[in-house]
Design a protein around this nucleic acid. Structure first.
Lengths: 216, 216
DNA sequence: TAGATTGTTAATCGATTAACAATC
DNA sequence: TAGATTGTTAATCGATTAACAATC
């Protein structure tokens, strides 16, 4: 096993995907897979798969392949999915509600503990047992309940201020759905879900061939 | 102006972001920006910004910089955001509703024309003037209304079948929110929003420093 | 042992950065 | 004209792929 000091983000982004395919294999009762078979399944090259996995350790066995269960568990641990995360959502609009419902139905290690709002009409509402609370009480709540992750489902104008408050209150990560880039202190991780950026690149790809024709 | 036959996806993914920052500059009434200033703002290197833009043409002026309005418009055209896109949503759950509402409030060139469901309880419902219709009628609807984009907000098990149907009916692009990788014919673009993958990489980054300590 | 397949090094490819000539 | 800043080529860096020795 080789020790890698710095693992590139490109590798990390592939791990959840590997894990998804491994889960499907588990469901089908397949207990062993070679990098070549896994390549056919996922579309990544066998070489890349082996290279990626070897950043974290030798999970395979020469002449045999990888144990599906074993690899699934290893990747889960690498990603930190063997732990529980307590989360709060800021913004009880449709998106905030959708996320609250999602995590409620698909029980995972990610638990929504509260939803915060400034709109008084929404405060007091319940979304699947989760109370919508006053945004003013968020710092106290995060501190008292050892919240790990803050989910930002606000407008873009409010997002940075909310982020600052959450960081101050002590979260370790932010999951940002607002269409802005959030600044955080070094020790707070941020993951952006820029939904409309994604739609814009879809638009590009739909017009791509046309653009090329025009140029000819 | 240099002609680039193949533009890398890394470049395309940066364009919506450039555009967002340009929009903010417009709002502030700033009408000119140099690649250096833009670098400070966005965090990309000045070199990369100039390199990216020159894939599409020389939009700047030596000794002056880039016109904010001009560049905003150029990028909009490159992405195809000067056009209108008719869309349908498949799946009227929370996520489908959230997207329907979002596009309704933030009027853009992306128009939701219908939402489709298999659950009879939801069929007939209205979400901001948009009717929830029977999934069985989707092919006819897409054909009759020249729908451009299909938005998949179903479970992962239904996603591929829905994708096939939408492709058959003639959409040009799919925006997939289901946690699977969708296969489409060559000419149909796909953009994935793998929400839980994103949460999983957030979990990794929150544990990263800890992993490194353990290794020492 | 022979066959298969990993782990790992080396080669290639592509993307980012640096440098500078062109030019406004 | 002098100064500034782009457009573009060349250098560097990093990520992917290929090759093969190690080993189960």
């Amino acid at each position: 096993m080789k020790r890698q000091t710095k693992i590139s983000n490109a590798v990390i982004k592939r791990l959840p995907r590997y894990r998804r395919y491994l889960r499907e294999l588990q469901k089908k009762g397949i207990d062993k897979i070679s990098s070549n078979e896994f390549s056919n399944l996922t579309g990544y090259t066998a070489s890349q798969i082996r290279q990626d996995l070897n950043n974290f350790g030798g999970f395979g066995q020469q002449g045999y392949g990888y144990s599906v269960d074993g690899l699934y568990n290893e990747i889960s641990v690498i990603l930190g999915l063997d732990k529980e995360y307590k989360m709060v959502i800021v913004g009880a609009g449709n998106l905030g509600q959708a996320i609250a419902n999602h995590t409620y139905y698909y029980k995972t290690g990610f638990i929504v503990c509260g939803i915060f709002e400034i709109n008084p009409k929404l405060i007091g509402m319940k979304i699947n047992d989760i109370e919508v609370m006053d945004y003013d009480s968020i710092v106290e709540f995060v501190e008292d309940n050892d919240i790990d992750i803050g989910i930002i489902c606000t407008t873009k104008d409010a997002a940075q201020e909310v982020a600052d408050k959450l960081c101050f209150a002590g979260v370790g990560g932010l999951w940002n759905f607002a269409p802005v880039d959030i600044e955080t202190p070094h020790h707070v991780a941020v993951e952006n879900m820029h939904i409309s950026d994604s739609l814009h690149s879809l638009a590009y790809h739909m017009n791509k061939s046309q653009n090329q024709e025009e140029k000819k």
